[in-house]
Design a protein around this nucleic acid. Structure first.
Lengths: 148, 148
DNA sequence: CGTATATCAGGTGCACTGAGATTT
DNA sequence: CAAATCTCAGTGGACCTGATATAC
């Protein structure tokens, strides 16, 4: 029984990226599920920690999460007590989302999961190679982020 | 309005991989949809072209597609006339899937889409850098393929 | 007025799970 | 018997669309 992948797939970067993303979701998704969190939660908490309070629309643009999913994820984060949501008095269309102390602690927990997941996912690569990979992909991602 | 992504995300390889995969699906998915195809179709046709006729279980293992999705995708490929499906006389549990001439032509069409998509997706990278990226990711994918 | 924001309802592609029927 | 194969029904997370109400 031959289970090799087709050689042309193994030479196609877009397929390799997709397969790596699958592994990534398996590893990180399991850890996040155990913490009753999600990738959306992590991205939102991270953005709030780095840039401070923001409106939902801004959070969506910063994290690449759809406006519609931002609503749902913030509902969950809010009922868990990780963020506060209040109307902006200067522009009553907006909600101002603020990270709570509990939210900061949750982010630190999730950070450890993410850290461990990198280790597992990129186990075959040296630190220098991981740096290479990160720089190459960052250029690709930034290139497409500008085209919108 | 600040729309920068959090710096820690841009330094997290698993997130970069995921974002690149999203762009990849956008670009290739659109082309495949126009050809009434899918990523599953491409992978299956490619595997058949490289290794010849195979059972559905073998196809699933080679392409990383779930046995359940192999059934559905082959239904579509079969009604489109791109593959033949017949019972293996030596083991009547198995179906032997064979690529037709039309399937080979369809694969060539899809190949051109995939080729063009690589160009668009990895536009900011030189040929040498794309080679680097491919080699790094191939090692990651093969590492996780062995662990099953 | 047009634009931006927040919300809700739904749709899709992809990976996956569980169960059943058949054959080895 | 156990194990493998094929099939079907359904789940779930992530991404995306369209429509609505409100405020600027």
């Amino acid at each position: 029984m031959d289970e090799r992948a087709p050689g042309r797939l193994l030479a196609t970067p877009s397929w390799l990226v997709g397969q790596t993303a699958v592994q990534s979701r398996r590893i990180i998704g399991a850890a996040f599920a155990a913490a009753e969190a999600s990738g959306y939660h992590y991205r939102l908490l991270l953005s709030l920690a780095e840039f401070g309070p923001a409106s939902q629309a801004t959070l969506g643009r910063r994290t690449g999460i759809d406006r519609s999913d931002v609503v749902a994820a913030l509902n969950e984060l809010s009922t868990a007590g990780y963020v506060d949501r209040e109307i902006d008095p200067d522009d009553r269309r907006r909600n101002i989302i603020t990270l709570t102390a509990a939210g900061r602690r949750q982010l630190e927990r999730l950070d450890r999961f993410v850290e461990a997941a990198q280790e597992e996912l990129f186990a075959p690569l040296s630190a220098a190679e991981r740096g290479q990979l990160t720089r190459l992909l960052a250029r690709v991602v930034e290139h497409h982020a500008q085209a919108d």
